[in-house]
Design a binder for these strands. Structure first.
Lengths: 359, 359
DNA sequence: ACGGTCGGCTAAACCGGTTTAACCCACAAG
DNA sequence: CTTGTGGGTTAAACCGGTTTAGCCGACCGT
């Protein structure tokens, strides 16, 4: 009954050894006779002892926790499809027992940095995930200074000592452009995400590259904050232009869906009048009408591998960079050839992008 | 410099007192002379000492962390607008320094219960948030047995010793029905969420009540798992019926948006042929076309108040139940009168539900 | 027979706080 | 002048592990 919870001393006594030896055994240290080892394990199992995490934390200065600090506008966070899936993936990577995830959502840069400082000051985490990397990201210097292990989700703008787990999202953007060009579009707009975010700008850059590579002018590129509201507003602006686009590539599914709403609201048809593509491959994108052509990434896998990498980094002080399968275009019904008048003069020499089927 | 981080002993020495007294001061215990108190605080500030969390955890058996275990199907979690906002709100409620959030995402009931057990076995958290309460929820008994403080997000199916922080979502559902009835609808369907979840079924029940209260038959009620896919599938089924509904009330925005997709796909118009309402009040709902009539709740406020309540419960072993402002209907463009043939014989005696304006 | 090495193990210090028992001293009451 | 009271303070035990220094005995080579 209400036994006051066994301690390592109880196990030691039961096995007839010293506390230290019990500790050795449970930390897989060499220098313990096999039979003694077995006897200790047996005694521990019989008593039902498990080492106290708090005590271990105190003497080893380890928290057995991983941290994720998310800096996002509260308005945007609710719609973002990335983090929940990413976190679910992290959980998978933590399966090996013992480690948990500490999550913090902060509104601005100062709070973000303060949060990291607190996390290490209180040694609440053994390492962190760096998501939404920005240009001149102050976190990189801070974490290096604090000596906190970290793994970067996506490539940073500069080289850094932290390992990278990357998922080539630019590939999906290039495929989107190729797909649209193949359909005969030439006036293609891009509604980008936050330009301060490395991945936001990289996707935009790859759009620009793909366009120029196709001999097209990448004008009609606008930045947003990833929100549905911004997506809608920019869509209005694009359509108000003297020579509106015949296709719009959005940097996220929520923006694309909001953009589609604007197009419909204006009495235009998708894809007859305007083709639309998104980014994320959300479940919802498959169920709007017309179903969204979008780029599917696998944020859960990203989280899982990031967790594994971080655990390895913490364990052996180094971990290799990891490249995940690239984001792929999933062609839906929201893209089609432009109306005849808008066709490119020469039939597209781009071959149709292969369609990745949904599961 | 690389000073090995000051400890309480350093402070004691600097202030010319014993370690114990320093501890007393920093725990606001009575029985310390005011001037001594000041001297100790001064010395601590000068040295830059902050008590070690690990050491405190060990001796006080407190983790200074709150836990949230989310059990959701990975497929649904990405689309769910509730948790990110709720978590952001929790963060607000934690502002008072010191406490952090531990998050765990689990796929099934067994893992869920195991996770709670581990959290207390390792005393990782001082209390937890209970979301997505289910009927005969095994967590209630488990947590009571483990003696872990908890606060329930929404009312449970049975009485429990844990405090409740509630947000009346049923009110919004009733408003939805009243709004539709007021427009002249009588064949109103309801696409519910998970029937095992208390709030899922309560919303459904309040739909049924509102319908019978209006003298209508609440047939056309279907259960789902909250996913967009299920929302779409059930919409198809409803529309295939011999006497299809003229309005559909959905238990979530993603389902409503997916349902709207199905309606459009079938060549029907919203709201001319079918009216649609959602639930959540997501940003995206305002930007689809036509803009969704939906019920807006404030999950961030919910999280904030839940956090405060939990902190109070932990601090003084009891906390009052809290009732937040009810979820309110926000009328958009997705609802309108049914086509003439489908009007209710007697003009509606329900007055129009007041429209809550978006910010 | 003897010094040296090495595997196996223990005692004790240590991590950095909290908490309890006891002590000292000043002051009030008897 | 004694005794009691109680505020202010300290020393030491304690939380439950990890880690280091060192001890003991067996086995080795010469």
């Amino acid at each position: 009954m209400g036994d006051p919870k066994p301690t390592i001393a109880d196990v030691a006594r039961a096995a007839g050894v010293s506390k230290g030896l019990v500790s050795f055994v449970f930390n897989d240290r060499p220098g313990v006779a096999p039979q003694t080892r077995a006897r200790i394990r047996e005694a521990a199992a019989a008593i039902g002892w498990r080492p106290s995490l708090s005590a271990r934390s105190l003497s080893t200065r380890t928290s057995f926790a991983l941290g994720l600090v998310v800096r996002r506008d509260p308005r945007v966070i609710a719609a973002d499809p990335f983090f929940p899936a990413f976190i679910a993936g992290v959980e998978m990577g933590l399966t090996g027992e013992g480690r948990i995830l500490v999550l913090s959502v902060v509104p601005d840069a100062d709070t973000e940095l303060r949060t990291y400082r607190r996390l290490v000051a209180d040694s609440r985490v053994d390492g962190v995930f760096l998501t939404d990397l920005r240009y001149d990201d102050r976190r990189l210097a801070l974490l290096a200074e604090l000596g906190l292990p970290a793994v970067m989700i996506g490539h940073p703008d500069r080289s850094s000592a932290f390992p990278v787990v990357n998922l080539d999202d630019a590939h999906g953007v290039r495929q989107s452009v190729a797909h649209l060009v193949g359909l005969g579009h030439s006036r293609i707009a891009y509604v980008a995400g936050e330009p301060q975010m490395v991945h936001g700008r990289r996707r935009r850059d790859s759009f620009v590259d793909a366009m120029t590579g196709a001999g097209l002018h990448p004008d009609r590129v606008v930045d947003t904050d990833f929100s549905a509201a911004a997506g809608a507003a920019e869509t209005h602006r694009l359509l108000d232009a003297a020579s509106p686009p015949t296709a719009i590539v959005y940097a996220s599914d929520p923006m694309a869906i909001a953009g589609m709403g604007v197009v419909h609201q204006r009495g235009l048809r998708v894809p007859a009048d305007i083709s639309i593509t998104g980014f994320d491959g959300t479940d919802l994108a498959r169920h709007v009408y017309p179903s969204l052509t979008t780029v599917v990434a696998d944020p859960a896998a990203w989280g899982r591998e990031a967790a594994r990498t971080l655990l390895q980094l913490i364990a052996v002080a180094e971990a290799p960079n990891l490249e995940l399968p690239a984001a792929e275009l999933l062609v839906g019904a929201s893209t089609g050839p432009p109306s005849h008048a808008d066709r490119t003069p020469y039939p597209a020499h781009y071959k149709e992008t292969p369609c990745v089927d949904a599961l």
